Simulated scan of single mutants.
Amino acid sequence: MMQDHDSAAAPLLQVSGLAKHFRVKAGLFGHATVKAVDGLNFHIRQGETYALVGESGCGKSTTGRALLRLTEPTAGAAMFDGRDIFKLSGGQLREWRRDAQMVFQDPLSSLDPKRRIAYSVEEPLIIHKVGDAAQRRKRVAELLERVGLSREHLSRFPHEFSGGQRQRIGIAKALALQPRLIICDEPVSALDVSIQSQILNLLMDLQSEHGLAYLFIAHDLGVVRHVADRIGVMYLGHIVEEADTDTLFSEPRHPYTQSLLASIPPAHPRLKTPRPILAGDIPSPMNPPSGCVFRTRCPHAMPRCAREAPPVRQLSPTQRVACHLFD
């Protein structure tokens, strides 16, 4: 985690009003709109880790995929170096995909099971016509060694590696084009706890070396605590609270954030948390609650919450929250 950001520095990525809606079948003849992401605003600075956290189904991964244009956004803008990446096409879109890469939850999804690892890591260099064959082979070997593997692994296939090793290969592949932004979509959630810390340390080391910016997507606040500079808490397509990491953990304001923190196992089994643990399931994005989308699970819900969606309020220079409790 990079600790010394200049708060006045211009963002590397500025996301405004990002929405992604899906039209799906509902019943025999009808259709419904699923608002997977509904009006996100956030920014990421160079060398910073911004984490999006929330339960499964809240729209975190859809956000990452929309930013890479793996799925086309419904509305919004995303400015990167003065360009709206949602308006890019052709060569400009190709250039954006050099600047931004993704590390997936399941690295097998980005590795061809029929190809040796050497080709999988080299593939982005081939697609973008970087160097000649000898230069690419040299680059691939260096990348593999940098992520903790050896040149002997180049001739192996994906199924011959452990989950942690495959994730290292996925990181090497993401680094191949020297991107400025990497979207990490649940990069450690499928790994054993002991391996998780190794991968997180590797990501932090690479960030320090290359000045990388990360959008780190996770469902577990405990995982992002030591890697994120700032955290956006997502619920049903909305960011309900955003703060720097220290503030979010010491002074969580939104009831949902408080509940997520309460679900983190205490450091000692005899310690108890005074915060309420979240009950019930997240509502369907096909039929979200009126007003505040969190009200059906909120211990502080008021009649007003059913009528009005709470506006985002800036509580301090580093913390904002969408909750009627803070009028």
Rank of each mutant, 00 (worst) to 15 (best):
A190W: 07
G237M: 13
P269D: 08
F86W: 03
S259K: 04
A77I: 10
S189I: 12
S110R: 09
A134S: 07
F29E: 09
P179N: 00
R275N: 10
S89V: 08
V193L: 06
P113V: 06
N287P: 03
P252E: 06
G280H: 09
C298L: 00
G54W: 07
G232D: 05
R151L: 01
G291L: 04
S259F: 03
R45D: 02
C292W: 00
P311V: 06
P311L: 03
D84L: 05
W96G: 11
R320P: 06
H238T: 15
M2P: 04
K87G: 15
A141H: 08
G211S: 00
H128Q: 05
N201Y: 02
M286C: 14
S150V: 10
F161Y: 02
V223P: 07
A78P: 01
T49L: 01
I126L: 13
P158F: 02
M2I: 13
L144M: 15
G170V: 08
R253E: 09
V293P: 07
L202A: 04
G90Q: 01
R313W: 09
T49S: 07
L181S: 06
L93W: 06
P265W: 08
F29I: 12
P310A: 05
A36M: 08
C184W: 03
V130G: 06
R65F: 13
L93H: 04
I195G: 07
A77E: 15
L212Q: 07
S290N: 13
I277Y: 06
H210R: 12
F22T: 03
I183G: 12
Q196H: 12
E142A: 08
M102C: 04
A8S: 15
A176G: 08
Q14F: 01
V130M: 11
F80K: 05
R137V: 02
A267I: 14
V223S: 03
Y235W: 00
P283K: 10
V147P: 03
I44L: 11
R69W: 02
A32T: 15
G91R: 14
T71N: 09
L88T: 10
K272A: 12
L191I: 12
F294I: 04
A190Y: 07
L68H: 01
R116L: 12
W96H: 15
S109T: 14
K87W: 09
H153S: 14
L175S: 05
E55N: 08
Q198N: 06
